[in-house]
Amino acid sequence: MSAVVTEGIAKHYGETKALDGLDLEVPQGRVFGLLGPNGAGKTTAVKVLTTLIKPTAGRALIDGIDVVQDPRAVRTRIGLTGQYAAVEERLTGRENLELIGRYFHHSKSDTAARATQLLDMFDLTDAGDRVSNTYSGGMKRRLDIAMSLVARPSVLFLDEPTTGLDPRSRLAMWEFIARLGDEGTTVLLTTQYLEEADQLAEQIVVIDEGRKIAEGTSDQLKDQIGGDKVRVTIVKPANVETAKTAIAPLCVGAVDVDPESLVTLTAPIRAGGGVVPGIIRALDSAGVDVLDVEVRRPTLDDVFLVLTGHAAETESTTSTGGGA
């Protein structure tokens, strides 16, 4: 059985269609990425799936249980980490974790043991007895996720878990999420960053304006939009044909030459890096003077440009639903 299934879920706020017939199927035990810009409907989808809002149309199931028909049964199976670090800032990390255990009606000793375990897992043992408003952003986020895991949910929802984190905290968070996935927790992750989905999610669905516009693995998506590209700028236009012949064997598609300047060559290359040194050597041994070699990886903007024909909206929208 799939961990999460949605069939044409829609959420309309008057004229605004936050979700407009979204179909998802999330297999069990994987990290699943929901990728899209602000306002694409990611948060709305998470809110429908976590019983916070009712869909205008369609059906959503968690472990086969309908979120509208039996929200309580759904709530026993899910963990939610929303866009804000939802921790009680005047309680300690440990108290926050124990609070969730008590809400699940577990015994005091079980709750305490689980809190200790989670503090350890999330590198918060030393900070566990400190009031959480003294925590850094990354620590609060980790506590936030730990709180969502207290009752061992079957599906964990992470709504933009690294938004607002500094690069180091983001990397640390990626490690935790990857570990959850390795251990077989089903994680539904929303993100605006292709790189993040790329790092963590085995399966990615791209959404825009409340609808699915593409899905596949990270490689499949990148192939769909052209993958990595190299851009070589040479010094003399006279060398352009030599340069083209030299780098062609290292590229995975046709080499385009900028017809105006005759010094810029662009070509798709294998993803994952390691190609640039070869390109430089090949140009060097062909006797071509190189000004610049630049590798461009696809960004979310590229995905959007290719898939929708319009650039990703980057400004945040404020809808009645209060989120993206």
């Binding site: 809110k47 976590t50 019983t51 916070l52 309580r72 049964a73 709530r75 026993t76 899910i78 963990g79 939610l80 929303g82 866009q83 804000y84 670090a85 939802a86 921790v87 009680e88 800032e89 969730i100 809400y103 699940f104 709180m147 969502s148």
Partner: peptide, 11 residues
């Protein structure tokens, strides 16, 4: 702070 969302997602 998002705490209401968390509480509402608990059984």
């Amino acid at each position: 702070k998002g705490l209401i969302d968390r509480l509402r997602s608990l059984p």
